[in-house]
Design a binder for these strands. Sequence first.
DNA 1: ATGAAAGCGCTAACAG
DNA 2: CTGTTAGCGCTTTCAT
Lengths: 334, 334
Amino acid sequence: MVASNGKLTSRDVARLAGVSQATVSRVLQNSPLVQPATRQAVLDAIAQSGYAPNAAARWMRTRRTGIIALVVANLAVNPLYPAMLQLLSTALRKRGMSASVYEEEDFSESTMRGIVEGGVDGVITTTAMESSLPFLERIADQVPVILLHRTVSSKAFDQFSSDNHASGASVASFFAKNGRKKIGLISGYNLPSTLREREEGFAAELARRGLQLKECAIARVPKFSYATGAEAAREIMMAHDVNAIFGVNDIVAIGALDGVRSKGLAVPDDVWVVGHDDVPMAAWDCINLTTVAQSREAMVDAAVARLCARLDDQDLRPKRVVLPHEFIVRGSAG
Amino acid sequence: MVASNGKLTSRDVARLAGVSQATVSRVLQNSPLVQPATRQAVLDAIAQSGYAPNAAARWMRTRRTGIIALVVANLAVNPLYPAMLQLLSTALRKRGMSASVYEEEDFSESTMRGIVEGGVDGVITTTAMESSLPFLERIADQVPVILLHRTVSSKAFDQFSSDNHASGASVASFFAKNGRKKIGLISGYNLPSTLREREEGFAAELARRGLQLKECAIARVPKFSYATGAEAAREIMMAHDVNAIFGVNDIVAIGALDGVRSKGLAVPDDVWVVGHDDVPMAAWDCINLTTVAQSREAMVDAAVARLCARLDDQDLRPKRVVLPHEFIVRGSAG
DNA sequence: ATGAAAGCGCTAACAG
DNA sequence: CTGTTAGCGCTTTCAT
């Protein structure tokens, strides 16, 4: 328990235990080639000295750091992301790896450089956009890259996502089946795959059922937040008489809830509001939002498992997995 | 742009550029001791080959990884933590460091080992408890440790926190000044410094003003979530006729909002509810929670700055900084 | 079962 | 300014 400032090496421990440095190394990796007595002597020496192996030296030899870069966005805005980060971090820890966070909407040259030169063994990104492709490709040149949640058009990556097209469609049929035909949509510009597919699925299903989504009943927000959602709902209601609104994620949908009420209308009596993602707040009584839940745990576990597999075998063929969703009816619609 | 799988070394680049390996190294650290023409040749060779330096080897020499362990808790439950994580991650990136997240309530042997052997240059923890002390001390033996948000009794650490005692007191005087005298409190067991100090400051100020906080008007939750907050409010109201409730953090306070309403009472007409932390949701119309905001950015920036200072000079005397709070009156009280 | 010895790819003296 | 050289602390043969 001597407080010697991380200066000790395995050589010091070896001397203390009266063995060679190589033997200390063997004990450290639980090699079976060490006699119990010797092992114990080494372990004692380690405990006595307070020795901790030098990670950098080990990494240099093994060419593995066990660090996985996690690229996430909107941590402070959309609770979906911390929820995924938490699951990812836990899943990685369980497999003996650690998580390095990169908070960034989309990719930039600097993020990419940080990742490539950051000594990570692999990357899991939840924020890929089409425009990220060149960066993703350059990263994938060095280490495995897994796309989670948001996907891109390339066939070169493992990609795990929710069935956003289908869930968008399910919102449309929910409105249609329940006779809600004056329909509004809150979406955005330059969308990631998730939101784009939800919007497309929603619009396609409306069309299939002969329902119109009028251009003026679509509000496009510059970014997805509570405030823009509220404003978008007000805009839609000014332009159009709607009785149902789909917000492509929960945060704008929650904003829409208050936007509708701020115009003196009631949810769900006058207007139904449906969101997407089932963030924890959606279940709160004061919000009580009808929404679509993704299979978050399954998605994360599958992505982490795939990353590990690819770490062991670089040449796996890229795989695309789409996970099921669940429609959750609460008080804001239905 | 050759896709050669991270196998190239600075030696390969040197050969390509017709210089020595050391020169490549110098270019990589922007050393001024390289002639522009030589530097350009090296840069060309780097670009041409797609070379990226081996981080582990560099770390081994410099004994710096630039990785800071961030210990946070409750990422998916209390939005305060992702908000701090986001600020921390950004502040570290700005200074050229990267963030490794450890999601864990309190410390455990395994978290500690992960950190000590994870090759981090330093640790910032937002989740310290008194029981973490032995672990923190062992970590601090190896690398600088900064306590943020939650503090401990030891004088041996740099600690940055909000003035939780004062903010607890400010809630009490707010109630008192406004004639709210039948007062309830939602707190917990085995509290971290933050919540303990808030509770103490609140109780002390009530006492100073001759107001009683009856034992039966205190609900202690096993963990701090929306659900436990709602249940706690109902318990308090069953046991006691209160007209004001302080929830020691926003999440339980938001739960309390709905707990009160679920008993058929109105906020704020019948019962005032005040929280603490000013999480983003507190400002939503549907929640509209009177609360106390911490100086989050200032706290994070100070902690990161201190970490950097300590990285440069291990022997700095530990410093304790308490940052101001701001009382924010919204619709749930006042 | 253990020790000796050879590097991993880089940085940092030290020469020139 | 640039090249040569010597390790950093570990893992991993190769002997024994």
